[in-house]
Amino acid sequence: MGDIHRYLREYYMPHIWCPGCGHGIILGAVLRAIDIAGLDQNNVAVISGIGCASRATGYVDFCTLHTTHGRALPFATGLKMVRPDMKIVVLTGDGDTAAIGGNHLIHAARRNIDITTVVFNNSVYGMTSGQYSPMTPTSRFATTAPYGNLERPFDLCALASAAGATYVARSTAYHVRQLTTYIGRGLAHKGFSFIEAVSQCPTYYGRRNRLGAAPAMLEWQKRNSISIEQAKDMEPAEREDKIVTGEFVNQTVPEYTEVYAQLIGRLGRQGESR
């Protein structure tokens, strides 16, 4: 494994992430996966939306695009359409992806366009200091859920799978080696790959919900994670507070920009025969 520092814009440090934030671990996993995959640094675009996780694009030395809130995937779609040779990685948070960008997520998955999306899921809007997100569990506290969250969270991997993503996996900041493996498989996958990385926000989510400091939250990730196989044998009530990790989908389906390239080829041949 090479030194991932060559992928960092260290001149732009320090980063904005709080001490104990899980995002640095996840970004490290992304960079290691890129390194292991041996991708050409000049031919990788990293695209993000708005939020703590989306600040990652500023810190990494690729072609980087920090877009508007929730819109990373459609920006990425436009770039991938005209540069199908480029490897496109979207780094995004749970608010960015599951709330304001939810529609873009399901349609990128439906098209099966070759983009690797990594969601840094810390269950909270950290950038705006701790409001509840679509990934905040029911009855947990947030600055906009002072009496406990009344809503139900998404199962993001189930959402991506149902929408047609062709590689879907979940891991956590604690299980960083597994996470790196899944991101690597997402990068190698031809089609829309979706990796949910459970992160910790000790500053807002952890403190407000009395989950302790970062080590305790990482311990919680370790304790509460179960495999897909383990989950199968559990009652829904038992599963409620658990993080189900593993690969949910891994299938081969025609990729959108390749299908489009075939159309161009077909029309070109028709033009010649005319």
């Binding site: 819109r71 459609p74 990425a76 436009g78 991938k80 359409m81 005209v82 529609n103 873009h104 349609h107």
Partner: peptide, 23 residues
């Protein structure tokens, strides 16, 4: 290349992404 996006916001985003790719 042409794409019909999921909404107007996404269309504008895709156009900017494509332009950054040189188109």
């Amino acid at each position: 290349r042409f794409i019909q996006m999921e909404d107007e916001i996404a269309s504008m985003a895709a156009v900017i992404g494509a332009s950054l790719g040189g188109a």
